[in-house]
């Protein structure tokens, strides 16, 4: 488990919205650029790391009850995406780390939970 504040430090991430959610506890993670693959993933308390920065990422998070998104590879979403996330109460982080390294850092620091595929 990691708190969002710890994730921010580990990934050297910027908080684009959701500064009030730094104490949220994250137990499992998902790294993907395909949203349908994300939607095949059932788990609570998830961080989604992705290189996609369009509004559908926020929509997918909304449907999945994913509270924290981390955009990787230095991708920065448009203001409309950040606004949509703010409206939905979803925290957005942004890091320069690539997806693989991002997942590796989170895993080795304590987010070991995986999704359920059945």
């Amino acid at each position: 488990m990691l708190k969002v504040s710890e994730i921010v430090k580990i990934l050297d991430a910027e908080v684009l919205t959701g500064e009030e959610n730094m104490d949220l506890e994250i137990y499992s993670g998902c790294g993907a650029d395909l949203m349908s693959d994300v939607m095949a993933f059932v788990k609570e308390s998830v961080i989604l790391c992705t290189g996609l920065v369009n509004p559908q990422v926020v929509r997918t998070a909304e449907m999945m009850d994913i509270k924290v998104l981390c955009f990787v590879r230095g991708k920065v979403p448009g203001e409309a995406v950040i606004e949509l996330a703010r409206e939905k109460g979803i925290t957005i982080l942004a890091t320069r780390q690539p997806l693989f390294i991002c997942c590796g850092l989170l895993y080795s620091n304590g987010i070991k939970g995986r999704g359920v595929w059945n």
């Binding site: 650029d33 395909l34 349908s36 559908q56």
Partner: peptide
């Protein structure tokens, strides 16, 4: 696909 869909799921 660029929008993150079309994975066939």
């Amino acid at each position: 696909r660029e929008m993150g869909f079309g994975a066939g799921m």
